[in-house]
Amino acid sequence: MTGTHFLIVILAAAFINTAFYIYARKKLGIPKPPWWYKPVNSTQGLLEIALLILLGFSVLRFPPEIMLFFFLYLMNGLRTFMEWKYEREEKQYVHYLFSTVLSLVIFIYICIFF
Results as ranks from 00 to 15, higher is better:
57 F>P: 02
17 N>K: 12
8 I>Y: 04
41 N>P: 02
108 I>G: 14
71 F>Y: 12
38 K>P: 04
113 F>K: 12
35 W>I: 15
9 V>D: 03
34 P>C: 03
80 T>R: 00
97 L>G: 07
78 L>Q: 10
30 I>E: 00
99 S>Y: 01
4 T>W: 13
99 S>G: 07
3 G>T: 08
67 M>A: 09
35 W>L: 04
17 N>M: 04
22 I>Q: 06
106 I>W: 01
32 K>C: 11
61 R>T: 13
39 P>Y: 03
112 I>T: 13
42 S>D: 10
60 L>G: 05
2 T>P: 07
51 L>H: 01
7 L>P: 06
92 Q>W: 02
89 E>S: 10
74 L>P: 02
49 I>M: 15
12 A>S: 13
41 N>T: 09
74 L>D: 05
89 E>L: 10
34 P>K: 11
109 Y>L: 13
78 L>K: 03
8 I>C: 11
5 H>A: 10
60 L>I: 07
16 I>S: 14
55 L>D: 01
20 F>A: 14
42 S>H: 13
10 I>L: 12
74 L>S: 04
3 G>D: 14
29 G>F: 02
102 L>M: 05
43 T>W: 14
96 Y>D: 00
42 S>Y: 14
69 F>S: 01
64 P>W: 06
64 P>N: 12
27 K>N: 08
71 F>R: 00
101 V>E: 02
20 F>W: 05
67 M>R: 04
22 I>N: 07
74 L>W: 01
94 V>I: 05
60 L>D: 11
35 W>C: 08
6 F>M: 09
71 F>W: 04
56 G>W: 02
68 L>V: 04
85 K>W: 07
94 V>D: 08
90 E>L: 04
113 F>P: 13
44 Q>E: 10
37 Y>A: 11
